[in-house]
Simulated scan of single mutants.
Amino acid sequence: MSPLRTSRQAEELSAALDGAGAPRDAQLLALVSVVERLRSVQLPRPSPDFFDQLRDHLVAAAEAQLASSAATATAASPDRRTRRSPSRSPWVRRHLGRLAGTVVVAASSVGVVAGSAQALPGDVLYPVKRAGESVELAFARGPASEGRVNLEHAEVRLDEVGSLTLRDDVESAENTRLVGSTLDDFTEQAAAGGSGLVSAFEADGDRAALVEIDEFATRAIHDLQGIAASLPEDTGQQFASAAGALEVLTQEVDATCPSCPSDPAQSADLEALLETVGNVLTSEALPVSASADPVTSTPDTGTDAPGQNPGGGGSGGGEPSEPDHPPTGQDDQQVDGGGGGSDGGGGGGG
C-alpha cells in the first residue's frame, strides 16, 4: 500500500470520526463502527487518588532518570558543572507532569482492553471485547486470514457458553438469553470462517485451509458435546443450529476436496453430537405433549361405564333410552310367538 493511499485513508477516517460523513472504504467503515461502539460503553475508571499517586511516581522516576543523565554528562564535561540540573527546570517539571498524565490515561485504557479479554456476555467490558475482535477482523487481509480470525472468534464463543453454563443462575431468563445469543454468534462466525477458508483453498489449492476447518470442527464438536448436558432449557434450537453449522462445514470440506482423507473418528463424533441434539430437542418438547387435554386422550377400553348400555336400553338407575332403530317385523313375530305361548298357557290354566 502506497504512503499516499495510507494518508488519504487516515484523513478519511479522521473526518468520519469527526462526523463529516461515512467513509467509502469497507474497512474504514468497520473501524468507524467499532469506535462508535466503544464510545457508547461506560468504562470503569480508577479513582482520582490512583491517578495522582501514579503521576507522582512517574514524575519522580523521570526526575531520577534525568538527574542520572545530567550527572553523567557533567562528569564528562567539567566546564558545565554550574549549569542547573534539567530535572529542576520549571519547564521540564511542567511537561513531565503533562507527559505523566498522558501515560496514565493511556495505561488505563490499555488495561481496560486487556481486562476485557476475560469478560463474558452480559459483563460491563464485554462490548469492549467484541469491539476488539471487530478491529482484528477489519485488519485481516484476504479470505484465508478473515476465515482464520472468524474461526478463532467462534471458539471463544464456545468457551463463553461453557462459562455461562457453570453459573448458579444457569436457568434464569437472562442467562438463557445470553447462552442462546452466544450460540447464534458461534454459528454465524463458524459459517463465515469456513466460507473464507474454502474460498482460499479454491483460489490457491492449498489444503492447509481445509485442514484448519477440519481441526476446528473436531474441537468444536467435542466442546458442544461437553456442554450439552448443562445447557439451560429453551436453548435447544440454538444448540441444534450450532451442531448443524459443524455438519455443513464437514460436508463442504468433503465436497470441495473429495480426494482429501477423512477422519472416521470425527464422523462418529458428529453422529453422536447429532443424536444428542435430537435428545435435547425431544426433552424440551416433552412438557408440551404431556400437557394435552386428558379428556381427549382417554383410551377406549371397550367396556361400558357404569349405568350405560351399548344397546341403548340399559338401566343404570335412570330412565331407559329409546333404541336407535325400531324393531323389524321378524322381531315382532318372535315377540308375538313368545307371547302366544304365554297366553296359551294361561288359557289352559283356565
Rank of each mutant, 00 (worst) to 15 (best):
L249W: 00
D56C: 10
A305F: 02
G147R: 00
P326S: 06
R94H: 05
F51R: 15
C257H: 09
E252R: 09
T282W: 05
A62Y: 02
E284S: 02
V161W: 00
G21F: 05
D18A: 15
R207W: 01
E188A: 09
S7T: 07
G317C: 02
R93C: 06
D332K: 12
T72C: 07
G122P: 01
Q330F: 08
R207M: 09
A173S: 14
K129P: 04
P287K: 07
T256Y: 00
S108W: 11
F50P: 07
Q189L: 13
E174L: 15
R8H: 12
R98I: 05
F201Q: 07
G180F: 02
T72I: 08
G349T: 13
E12A: 07
A76M: 12
V161H: 00
R167F: 10
Q27V: 14
G313W: 08
E133P: 08
L43V: 10
T218W: 06
P44C: 07
A70D: 15
P299G: 11
V198I: 09
D343P: 04
V288F: 00
D331Q: 15
P90K: 07
I213T: 01
A16D: 05
L281C: 02
L274K: 11
G307R: 09
F239I: 01
S291C: 04
P299W: 05
E155V: 04
A140F: 04
S172E: 14
D52M: 13
G101N: 03
E271V: 11
V104M: 09
P294C: 03
A272E: 12
D300R: 14
D234I: 03
V248D: 03
R94S: 05
A106I: 03
A265W: 02
G339C: 13
A203F: 06
R55M: 11
L246W: 00
G97S: 10
T165P: 12
V105K: 07
P287F: 05
P323M: 06
D168N: 15
S2L: 12
S195N: 14
E174H: 12
G193M: 06
D25N: 10
D159F: 03
A73M: 13
Q53H: 13
L66G: 00
G147W: 00
G349W: 10
T82N: 15
S321V: 09
T187M: 01
G132D: 04
P261S: 13
G101V: 00
G346H: 14
D324E: 15
S145Y: 04
S14V: 10
S40H: 05
E133G: 12
R157Q: 01
D52R: 15
S109N: 10
G313C: 12
V112N: 01
T328A: 11
E233H: 13
V280S: 00
D300W: 09
E275P: 03
A131M: 09
E63C: 13
G111I: 02
R81V: 10
T6I: 04
G337K: 11
G122V: 02
L38A: 04
D184A: 09
A272K: 11
D204Q: 11
S109G: 08
S77G: 07
Q266I: 06
D332H: 10
S87V: 07
S89W: 09
R93I: 05
G142E: 03
P327I: 04
V32W: 04
L178Q: 03
A138F: 01
A173W: 03
E247V: 03
G236L: 00
L43S: 06
G346C: 14
D324S: 14
D304A: 14
P46V: 08
